[in-house]
Amino acid sequence: GTEIELESKNGQREHYTATSEDEARKIIEKAVRRGIKRIELRGASEQLIRDMQEIAKQIGLQYRTDGSL
């Protein structure tokens, strides 16, 4: 699965493990709508990382991946 670590603007951290790319995408989209400061992805697919970079650029988000592409 993909591990997703979120940090909201007030510094609250949340951790999710998505079993599918679809689920990961839903978690990320929800977080973005809620207003999130930072997202870290571990074990994400190349496609998901590309999507994440696109989203991050659009809304000026900090993100990090573990680089295991």
Rank of each mutant, 00 (worst) to 15 (best):
D22R: 08
T17A: 07
S8Q: 09
D66I: 05
I55Q: 02
E7S: 05
S20K: 04
G35W: 04
M52L: 14
L6Q: 02
S20A: 04
I36C: 10
L69M: 10
T65S: 13
R64L: 15
A31N: 03
E40C: 15
T17Y: 12
L69K: 04
A44N: 02
E5I: 14
A44E: 01
R38G: 04
A18D: 06
E21N: 06
G43L: 03
V32N: 01
K30H: 12
S45E: 01
Q62R: 13
I27G: 00
E14D: 05
S68D: 08
I36D: 04
D66P: 04
R64I: 15
S8D: 13
S8Y: 15
K37D: 04
L41D: 00
I27P: 00
A44D: 01
G43F: 12
E21R: 05
R13H: 10
Q58L: 12
E46P: 10
R34D: 10
I36Q: 01
R64A: 15
G67D: 09
R33K: 11
G1P: 12
T65N: 12
I36V: 11
E7M: 09
R38C: 10
D22V: 08
E7R: 07
Q47L: 08
L61Y: 10
R38Y: 14
E40R: 15
I28W: 02
S68A: 07
Q47G: 10
G1Q: 11
I59T: 13
S45V: 02
Q58V: 07
G67S: 05
S45D: 03
S68E: 10
E21H: 05
M52Q: 00
E14I: 13
S68G: 08
L6V: 14
S45M: 02
Y63I: 15
G11V: 01
T17Q: 05
I27T: 01
A24M: 05
Y16M: 03
S8R: 11
Q47S: 12
L61C: 15
G1T: 13
E3N: 08
S8K: 07
G67F: 04
A31F: 08
I55K: 03
L61T: 03
G67I: 08
V32T: 04
K9D: 12
L6E: 01
S45Q: 02
Q62E: 15
G60A: 06
K37E: 06
R38L: 05
E7G: 03
E46Y: 06
R33F: 10
S20R: 04
H15R: 12
E23G: 03
D51M: 14
L69I: 09
Y16A: 02
L48F: 07
A31S: 04
R34N: 13
Y63R: 06
S45G: 05
Q62N: 06
